[in-house]
Nucleic acid binder design. Structure first.
Lengths: 170, 170
DNA sequence: TGGCAATGTCAACAAGGCTGACATAAAACT
DNA sequence: AGTTTTATGTCAGCCTTGTTGACATTGCCA
């Protein structure tokens, strides 16, 4: 497994995929693809006066209904002051609801309101549409490879979070 | 080809890779992987008082020696004011050299100085190391899929730029 | 009761986007 | 030759989103 799937017929032949040239292509592909990845939601957000940070908060609140602020902080990897600024406007605008925890009353559990869910839907529809087109064009095997490489590219801590998030809903 | 490689045994079976759940995983993988992708260079840049914008400029100047400002603007997709702020500090610090064009004297051609090349090397070593580890773990087939999906995810204009950049140096 | 945890908030700062306006030099066009 | 367009640079100001540091409140827990 350390030499990757495909097994025997490599060593020196297929190792060409690790040349600096190939790596640079990968790097530039990430750069350009990430631009495309965020382009559609960004256009929608702009019309509402929100930014990418709002999108991320909305995404992960939708993703994990009732998550706590601390948990969201860990997922997003920003400071509480930064998150709070975003969260405050979302709550003020009635897109997110913050409920005091029942077990631990210090915690705030975050939920999307109906309005929030509508925006979330709109944003993720746009983003999924692009992802779907890319997946369809590329085909299932390419998609599997795509996910494998991305997963390997994450920082250890982030990979654990990603896997924890992901493993639940198959 | 419109249904992706793999040909016949799909339609309704392997189409499972286009479910909303799978698409969401792809979206989150992009988010977490991009964090990892930028983490190592960011750490280096921080010690020099530079940011990600400087890295991008340095990368593409290295990439296309003698590129013009306009060309760089198109690749990076930012305004000239934004790029100029970055470029000015890089020139002032002696990492980038700006030479008046010979054919067209309005143009400025950009080059990395020796100092600039040293930093470029350091940054790309770090980024390539992570990419290389990810590629090695994932294997050549996964890497091919990775690039296929990313390419399909780009905006049309950006994809053209990426391919134009990429096609030259195999 | 004292200490730690979860959250919120204020203030200040920095990076890096953006727009708009204006200046200069050189090329290109008429 | 004169006008317009292009390439570049620059000033000023604004926004989002990240940061640090300090401080307050509330509630859990030993």
């Amino acid at each position: 497994m350390a030499d990757g799937p495909g097994g025997g017929a490599q060593r020196g032949e297929t190792l060409l995929f690790l040349t600096d040239e190939q790596l640079r292509k990968g790097i530039e592909a990430m750069f350009f693809a990430y631009k495309g990845f965020t382009a559609d939601p960004d256009r929608i957000l702009e019309t509402r006066g929100y930014g990418r940070a709002h999108h991320r908060a909305i995404h992960f609140i939708h993703r994990s209904h009732g998550t706590t602020v601390n948990n969201l902080l860990a997922i997003l990897g920003v400071t509480k002051q930064s998150l709070n600024r975003v969260l405050r406007t979302l709550i003020k605008d009635g897109l997110v609801e913050s409920r005091v925890g029942t077990r631990d009353k210090r915690e705030r559990h975050l939920y999307l309101t109906e309005t929030g869910q509508i925006l979330e839907q709109e944003l993720s529809d746009a983003q999924r549409a692009r992802m779907r087109d890319a997946f369809r064009v590329a085909g299932p095997e390419a998609v599997a490879g795509f996910r494998t490489v991305l997963e390997a590219m994450m920082d250890g801590e982030m990979r654990r979070r990603y896997l924890r998030l992901t493993e639940g809903g198959q």
